[in-house]
């Protein structure tokens, strides 16, 4: 069974086997406003836990996207690059950002479950 976990940087991560799918949360998209640009990591590159792994820009500002776990980028979602408004429409499902082959499953342990994240998001409404 795959459980979705959440980071303090407002990413969600869903682990299936040793492949994790990562995107940004609905809460994040609401804070950002209309997303008009997305940049993803390169396929085949390695990313480190809490490191930058992409950028989203709204009409207002640019924000880095971080990866909540380390791994090798095995897939990226070109659809959101071609039409970034999809991120606002379906952030926690079809508008995923990238997939990682992860190195260390224990990195998932420090992340939040849905209830804890919802509470965290409510308290950090900025």
């Amino acid at each position: 069974m795959s459980e979705v976990k959440y980071s303090k940087e407002h990413e969600w991560i869903k682990l299936e086997g040793d492949v994790a799918t990562i995107g940004i949360t609905k809460h994040a998209t609401e804070m950002l406003g209309d997303i008009v640009f997305a940049e993803l990591p390169e396929k085949g590159s390695d990313v480190e836990k809490d490191g930058t792994a992409g950028v989203v820009e709204s009409t207002k500002a640019a924000s880095d996207v971080y990866t909540p776990v380390s791994g090798e980028v095995v897939d990226t979602n070109q659809e959101i690059v071609d039409d970034p408004s999809k991120i606002n429409q379906d952030p926690e499902n079809s508008a995923w950002f990238f997939k990682l082959k992860i190195k260390d499953k224990s990195e998932m342990d420090s992340l939040m479950n849905k209830d804890d994240y919802d509470k965290f998001a409510k308290e950090n409404n900025t």
Partner: peptide, 10 residues
Amino acid sequence: PIQYSEGIVE
């Protein structure tokens, strides 16, 4: 107000 519920693009 920077924006309302419909957002900047709308």
